[in-house]
Nucleic acid binder design. Sequence first.
DNA 1: GCAAAAGTGTTGAGTGTACACCCATGC
DNA 2: GCATGGGTGTACACTCAACACTTTTGC
Lengths: 229, 229
Amino acid sequence: MKIKNNPDSAQLIIGPALAVDTLIFTIREGKLNVLLIKIGSGPYQGKWALPGGIVPINETLDEAARNILEKKAGLKGVYMEQLYTFSGVARDVRGRMVSVAYFALVDSDQFALKTMDYYTDIQWRALDHLPRMAFDHKEIIQYGFARLQAKIEYTNIAYGLLPAEFTLSELQAVYEIILERALDKRNFRKKILALGIVQTAKGLRRGGVSRPAQLYRFTQRSLMLAQIL
Amino acid sequence: MKIKNNPDSAQLIIGPALAVDTLIFTIREGKLNVLLIKIGSGPYQGKWALPGGIVPINETLDEAARNILEKKAGLKGVYMEQLYTFSGVARDVRGRMVSVAYFALVDSDQFALKTMDYYTDIQWRALDHLPRMAFDHKEIIQYGFARLQAKIEYTNIAYGLLPAEFTLSELQAVYEIILERALDKRNFRKKILALGIVQTAKGLRRGGVSRPAQLYRFTQRSLMLAQIL
DNA sequence: GCAAAAGTGTTGAGTGTACACCCATGC
DNA sequence: GCATGGGTGTACACTCAACACTTTTGC
């Protein structure tokens, strides 16, 4: 196990090691996806897992998670929050490891995946077609999905999954994919507009064969409470 | 820093040490209280803090938190859930320490406090009269209070603060104290009864000078979703 | 002109909110 | 008999859910 070591503040501890794992959601081709990496070496070689790493002695968990997002997944400035801390005694065969899971949302169009040195592969995988996974990472994904489903109903968190400008139909699709049910178009638009969480942007989206759609943007691209459903 | 060490599974880690802190709420004399201990030695001697401890190498966080509740606060079988993991780099002057906070609910009448060896004092303190506290424990309390306020609105979590049998007025008082606002008696009773989260128990509470009140019990003393407010 | 998605209002049911008086008991 | 908290119903406002057709574009 490779562990970063800052000699200035190093201390010897006999206790569980601390890691951060990041659960990154995006929407691609009408489905909710998570970012997975393929482990390159060690007892879990060839297995899929969430991007993660050991917490350096001189970083907070938020900093460690941001660094993993940036350096291991190439994602910067995305929505992120702490999810839960997992501590099963047997979750890592290499030794006692406690992992703080973080959860991030990305507009997949804005980021091109590139495989990093650390891993042999990195892929978006649909939530309903996950491979077998290392550690308890499937459990983390289920937990995070539940959080996402809950939070999209009473916050504007959906902004994390959309570009700056989007149509109301695109926003509605995000809701339908995450909640796994159809929503009524008129009621949805009425509610979203009444809440004032979006405002019209200049321009239309002319996607092809049909009538162009008005573009909107979130009035705030930061977490806000708003009872939507 | 004293650290428990199980030689069977010990490993040397250079990284943040891991602790659990428990935030224990109860209601006493019409106010929300938290359980605080007074630290007996070290740089924080004489300061107040939440009961906590280092996570042993062979315990999950839930187990470690249960053990702290039982051995340091004398509480068994109470409602408990993981709250959040705090990781500020300077939260403990003795060294880098990450703390997983847990949050517990207790019916204070059922447990008599006794000061343990570890601490020089242990007390219930009203949330609106907290002493100066060690570490970032005031922040943990604020975070936990927000969780409690949110969760009492959409779950039956209030059972953790009440004895097996209680009157609807007592239940309403719990809600009013936590939400810090008055509720309409008729509407409250209508909602609670319609949801079916309580059922009548045998007997009446004859508290003294006024009409005796019907006793109720929760239909389930485990966490259930129920939109109450 | 036709296929495809955008956009738009109304109605009925159900839920939430406000509100005041009688009841059973202890002293 | 009076002070104390227990217990009960109704009316109005508002919110939620169901539902169908016209518009604008590309081909």
